[in-house]
């Protein structure tokens, strides 16, 4: 890996419900990071509504870019390229970011750099490491993704396993909705679980066989639904009776999700004899995951490296950072660049 130079990359991210722009120097140093969150716009609906997201991205994209360049004191002529998320994500959302990036690349005559959103989350974790020691086991876990990779370089990730159904963050969202904790579910569950006993309620950790590196969270979702409906499903709507223990329920569910993630990571580290684990994505903000993963990793002689908290949820720093790595390899695109949902 050649050492980072001083190249400035403008990153643009709009794959789901955050409109983000950032300027990063040398793939490492964030000079600015602007994130326009749509959480409040989607909260009423309990999840991301694609049409609301598309409209919001259009409103926010140019102001976000302008703010990122101003905050970085960066002029268009200073930029070495424009990096943008092209996949995976909501098509209508991706199209706004990619159209903006293509417009800038054409107007300013700059290289256009396509970036894979999940690889960028892995890069976010790499950005918190001073000296890279490849390979790594990489977990990217969020509301839309739960995948394990063997990472050989910032640009080379071999998929080891992914979720067969729901993403971990999606399971947290659904559980939070059933417990009337609000949206997004991850932070809401974490807050409700603060003083809860993670052993108060039993939730299975789905391992899917002794060697599997795949995930499945739909069963956990069903398990909490049945717990909330009561024995024999006697309550029509899932509700937690006052006599029951909300912190305990939240803590138990959260622990089950995080334990599953941790066990799979350690299993992958053992199977591939790679004693370094990278963790990125929105769920990587979760404190239980961070603390329990660090503890379990240490016991197993493995190093667990998390993306910085501000780089876990969707952001454009990771897009610009990985864009720099692509540019070093001359991996750029022409104006016919397209988006992809998966």
């Amino acid at each position: 890996m050649s050492p980072p130079d001083e190249a400035l990359i403008l990153g643009i991210e709009s794959s789901c419900d955050e409109t983000a722009a950032a300027v990063v120097r040398g793939g490492r140093e964030a000079l600015s990071s602007v994130v326009h969150s749509q959480i409040a716009e989607h909260a009423e609906w309990g999840g991301v509504v694609p049409e609301i997201a598309g409209r919001s991205h259009l409103r926010a994209i140019v102001p976000a870019i302008e703010e990122a360049l101003t905050e970085a004191n960066c002029h268009p002529q200073d930029l070495s390229g424009i990096a943008v998320t092209t996949r995976p994500g909501l098509l209508g959302s991706l199209l706004v970011g990619v159209t903006a990036a293509k417009s800038l690349a054409w107007a300013w005559q700059k290289p256009l750099i396509p970036v894979h959103h999940i690889e960028a989350h892995a890069y976010a974790a790499l950005m918190s490491v001073d000296h890279w020691e490849f390979p790594y086991i990489t977990l990217v876990v969020s509301g839309g993704h739960t995948s394990l990779f063997r990472t050989e370089s910032p640009l080379a990730h071999a998929l080891l396993g992914t979720t067969r159904d729901d993403a971990a963050g999606e399971a947290l969202d659904k559980a939070a909705a059933m417990l009337n904790l609000g949206y997004p579910g991850g932070p809401a569950i974490q807050k409700a679980a603060t003083d809860g006993d993670p052993k108060a309620y039993a939730f299975k950790r789905p391992m899917l066989g002794p060697n599997s590196l795949e995930f499945s969270f739909s069963g956990m979702k069903t398990a909490i639904l049945y717990k909330l409906k009561g024995p024999g499903g006697r309550r029509e709507e899932p509700t937690l009776p006052e006599s029951q223990n909300l912190p305990g329920m939240a803590a138990s569910f959260e622990a089950a999700v995080m334990d599953t993630l941790i066990r799979k990571c350690l299993r992958a580290a053992q199977q591939y004899n790679i004693p370094r684990i990278l963790v990125g994505g929105g769920v990587a903000c979760n404190q239980r995951l961070r603390v329990d993963m660090a503890s379990a990793a240490e016991k197993n002689g493995v190093q667990a490296i998390f993306a910085r908290a501000e780089h876990c949820t969707d952001n454009a720093v990771m897009i610009a950072g990985l864009g720099y790595a692509h540019l070093q390899q001359h991996e750029t695109a022409d104006l016919l660049l397209d988006v992809a949902a998966s």
């Binding site: 049409e51 598309g54 259009l58 870019i65 268009p76 417009s103 107007a107």
Partner: peptide, 19 residues
Amino acid sequence: SYTGLRIACTAARTLAYAL
């Protein structure tokens, strides 16, 4: 088409800003 309108307006606004 909402998608078509958003693409056109995104391009128009971004080009206007950039140039």
